[in-house]
């Protein structure tokens, strides 16, 4: 595991510590990196330079209720958070749609 950790520290965005999961979701729709970062920054109302900044993203994720890396009680996490991420980014997330299907929403 030392190698993936070294990669993440050297060049990773930082997952749910920052906005890494959000940029990843945009790249998954064929967006190139720069476009994906700009798209996420625009949707979150932040500068692109803040995408991987823990100071900005920690508070913003809590305010937007889209899961924080530390276990903050009552902040949305997992499927709850993904349903909010789908709305905020304007993208489809399969597991959220699956839940809606089960709820007949």
């Amino acid at each position: 595991m030392g190698m993936p950790i070294a990669h993440g520290i050297a060049g990773g965005i930082g997952g749910i510590r920052t906005a890494g999961d959000l940029v990843a979701r945009c790249e998954m729709t064929k967006m190139r990196l720069k476009d994906a970062k700009k798209y996420v920054a625009n949707k979150l109302g932040i500068d692109v330079s803040c995408i991987a900044d823990e100071f900005t993203m920690r508070k913003l994720r809590e305010d937007l209720d889209i899961c924080t890396i530390t276990g903050v009680p009552n902040v949305a996490r997992h499927l709850e958070a993904k349903s909010r991420i789908a709305d905020i980014l304007g993208i489809k997330i399969r597991s959220v749609d699956h839940l809606k299907l089960k709820m007949k929403v």
């Binding site: 993440g8 050297a10 060049g11 990773g12 890494g20 940029v23 994906a36 692109v48 330079s49 991987a52």
Partner: peptide
């Protein structure tokens, strides 16, 4: 490590 702003998706 990369310069701040150059981070990529893992």
């Amino acid at each position: 490590s990369v310069k701040p702003g150059n981070e990529v998706v893992m």
